[in-house]
Write a protein that binds this DNA or RNA. Structure first.
Ligand SMILES: [Mn+2]
Ligand SMILES: [Mn+2]
Ligand SMILES: [Zn+2]
Ligand SMILES: [Zn+2]
Lengths: 132, 132
DNA sequence: CAAGTAGTTTAGAACGATTTTAAAGTAAAA
DNA sequence: TTTTACTTTAAAATCGTTCTAAACTACTTG
């Protein structure tokens, strides 16, 4: 399925701007990035896009499940093209995130989900720092 | 150990403002809160404190290990008085966090820590949402 | 205790990330 | 083709947080 079809299937009009972002984000190597990272990459390729549009698109993409947003205590939102359930190393010295594939982690025991609620995904974060 | 001693031991001068915050946060029931939550609570008790001071104190408390900051994709920083290693349910409908005690989770398999790095804590986040 | 000094608080300004506004532009529907 | 709803944009606004610089206070030293 090409990117235009992916957008259509997600209920999003394939505008010029969304196609530019889809071409960068979808179907390539997985990555973690900020809105500003993405704008810089668009600029480097000789194109340009309003930062408002970038935020609009990322929010739409996220709400459609085309990308995810990472839980992070940094003050800038971090997005993730890896939409499979997976886990992360967090380098606490640098803030860098590294993917951990889902099957590299195995949970022997989990608490009961509160009454009336559904498990909507489990994420493991392994904080690491450089050895001294 | 009383709060004044706790601050001293952490290398922090027990100022009037830090004692007010310590009295609210330390040694009570564990909770998750924002800087604004804390200011509202201080205000409700008839006291007042500059928001800059609240941020200053929370940062000092966090750096001393008296409180933690939660990994969260919300744009407001969330702090946690539970400084033990533990896990969370995240109610994705409301943003509410619920503590999961460390021994309620058991990890059978973890990936290898990258060469030259140390494991500095593992956090499990279980996202939940209301059943439909 | 009295001074001295180093650390702290504060209001307000500044900042950086994100959202809103409102007008112009574009994609899809009729 | 005309109409409609949706999208993009620059610029302003907003929001959480940090900075500035002056006043204040806790601790140290004499
Ligand atoms: Mn923030
Ligand atoms: Mn965040
Ligand atoms: Zn990832
Ligand atoms: Zn907690």
């Amino acid at each position: 399925m090409n990117n235009k079809e992916k957008l259509r299937k997600a209920g999003l009009r394939p505008t010029k701007q969304r196609m530019i972002i889809a071409d960068i984000l979808l179907g390539g190597i997985n990555r973690h990035f900020t809105a500003e990272n993405l704008q810089n990459e668009i600029n480097s390729s000789g194109k340009s896009m309003s930062i408002a549009t970038i935020y609009n698109c990322l929010k739409k993409f996220r709400n459609c499940g085309l990308i995810k947003q990472v839980e992070s205590s940094k003050d800038t939102a971090i997005f993730d093209t890896n939409i499979n359930q997976h886990h992360h190393f967090l380098n606490e010295d640098t803030g860098e995130l590294i993917d951990i594939e889902n099957d590299a982690v195995n949970l022997r025991k989990l608490p009961e989900i509160p009454q009336g609620y559904l498990n909507n995904g489990v994420e493991v974060l392994i904080k690491i720092k450089k050895q001294i």
